[in-house]
Simulated scan of single mutants.
Amino acid sequence: MLKVGDKLPKFEGINQDGISINSSQLLGKKLVIFFYPQANTPTCTVEACNLSDHYSTLTNAGLQVLGISGDTVKKQKNFHSKFAFPYDLIADENHEILEKFGVWQEKKTFGKTYMGIVRTTFIFDEQGICKRVIEKVTSKTAANQILEGIN
Rank of each mutant, 00 (worst) to 15 (best):
Lys29Asp: 08
Lys30Ala: 08
Lys30His: 10
Leu31Pro: 02
Ile33Leu: 07
Phe34Pro: 01
Phe34Thr: 11
Tyr36Cys: 08
Tyr36Thr: 08
Gln38Val: 06
Ala39Met: 03
Thr41Lys: 15
Cys44Glu: 04
Thr45Pro: 02
Glu47Arg: 13
Ala48Asn: 06
Asn50Leu: 07
Leu51Arg: 14
Leu51Trp: 14
Asp53Thr: 11
Asp53Pro: 01
Asp53Arg: 10
His54Cys: 12
His54Glu: 12
Ala61Asp: 10
Gly62Gln: 11
Gly62Leu: 14
Val65Met: 10
Leu66Asp: 06
Leu66Tyr: 09
Leu66Phe: 12
Leu66Trp: 10
Gly67Met: 15
Thr72Arg: 05
Val73Gly: 10
Lys75Met: 14
Lys75Pro: 00
Gln76Lys: 11
Lys77Val: 06
His80Gly: 14
Ser81Lys: 13
Ser81Glu: 14
Lys82Phe: 12
Phe83Ile: 11
Ala84Gly: 04
Phe85Ala: 12
Pro86Lys: 00
Pro86Tyr: 05
Asp88Leu: 13
Asp88Cys: 06
Ala91Lys: 04
Asp92Gly: 00
Glu93Ala: 02
Glu96Trp: 00
Phe101Cys: 02
Phe101Leu: 01
Gly102Thr: 00
Gly102Ala: 01
Val103Asn: 03
Val103Met: 08
Trp104Lys: 00
Gln105Ile: 15
Glu106Asn: 07
Thr109Lys: 11
Thr109Ser: 04
Phe110Ser: 04
Phe110Tyr: 12
Gly111Phe: 13
Gly111Met: 08
Lys112Val: 13
Thr113Asp: 00
Thr113Gly: 01
Thr113Gln: 01
Gly116Tyr: 09
Val118Ile: 04
Thr120Phe: 00
Phe124Gln: 00
Asp125Val: 01
Asp125Ile: 02
Ile129Arg: 09
Cys130Lys: 02
Arg132Leu: 15
Ile134Pro: 02
Glu135Phe: 08
Lys136Phe: 01
Ser139Pro: 13
Thr141Tyr: 03
Thr141Ser: 08
Thr141Arg: 05
Ala142Phe: 08
Ala142Leu: 10
Ala142Arg: 12
Ala143Val: 03
Ala143Phe: 07
Ala143Ile: 00
